[in-house]
């Protein structure tokens, strides 16, 4: 099973790479016909990625969400899922052109991690692990998409001089709205992640909140997005500044994810 996972993982990387190239040609050379092809390849990559995660789960005899490798590949999976949904829902293939490099970076990061299957330490042996991490994957995926949308928003005016982008990138108001939808999806799931994490910590460590760096940074992230939501409501902050805040939020997400494990050891630093 783990061998199958390995093979699938390689194919998934290739497919994601291929879809990234197709998206790139689509926007750089304005080849409209390639947009559906890029989406199809991304969707195929997603399907095989799902299969790879299932193989890993079966092979390891548990949910594939417990170490850096597994979380990184799941993160890429979540980002792929949310971006596919947003591309389809808002008929917005240019989003794929911006999200596929981020996806590829994350799956590349996964490829660099150790793929060993290790036994779980007792505190990780809990049903809450599944709820906690799977909601985090969706939250991170949604925040990844909002980051990409923020970048598109900020680059929009420079991009839309030609007719191609005018046609393929929604106007500012719509972009802001789509970004808001992705932040709200992320915010809801991040809150889920924090709540399930707190319930689990209460069972495993006897304390639902202990200000460990990972917890603290997820709270910082949560507050940054709360600030985004309020600034956006105030009107004046719509648009450019809100986009800057959404991008900043994702920087916090990435710091919570990678930075904390690297620089700020605490009880969360497994793996």
């Amino acid at each position: 099973m783990l061998k199958a996972e390995n093979t699938l993982f390689t194919i998934v990387m290739l497919l994601y790479f291929a879809s990234m190239i197709l998206y790139f040609i689509f926007v750089a050379f304005k080849r409209e016909k390639l947009a559906p092809a890029a989406q199809l390849v991304q969707a195929a990559g997603f399907a095989l990625h799902t299969a790879a995660l299932i193989c890993r789960g079966v092979g390891a005899g548990r949910l594939p969400m417990t170490n850096q490798y597994e979380f990184a590949t799941s993160f890429a999976w979540g980002l792929c899922l949310v971006s596919l949904i947003f591309i389809r829902r808002f008929r917005f293939p240019v989003l794929g052109a911006f999200s596929s490099p981020v996806m590829f970076l994350i799956i590349g990061y996964a490829a660099m991690q150790s793929k060993d299957v290790k036994e779980l330490m007792p505190s990780l042996r809990s049903n809450w692990l599944g709820f906690h991490v799977s909601t985090a994957i969706i939250a991170y995926g949604a925040f990844g998409v909002s980051f990409v949308l923020a970048l598109i928003f900020l680059a929009r005016d420079r991009l839309t001089r030609g007719g191609f982008f005018d046609e393929h990138i929604p106007d500012r108001e719509m972009l802001d709205m789509i970004g808001y939808r992705s932040v709200s999806l992320g915010m809801l799931f991040l809150s889920f992640t924090m709540l399930t994490g707190a319930i689990w910590a209460e069972q495993a460590w006897g304390s639902y909140w202990s200000w460990d760096p990972k917890e603290t940074w997820s709270l910082v992230t949560w507050i940054v997005y709360a600030a985004y939501l309020h600034l956006r409501i105030r009107g004046g902050w719509r648009g450019r500044s809100a986009a800057v805040f959404a991008a900043l939020g994702f920087v916090c997400v990435m710091f919570t994810y990678i930075g904390v494990n690297t620089f700020l050891p605490g009880i969360h630093s497994y793996a």
Partner: peptide, 11 residues
Amino acid sequence: VVLAAVCAAGS
């Protein structure tokens, strides 16, 4: 925002 900054400092 100040709360977030304090939390970050605390970490």
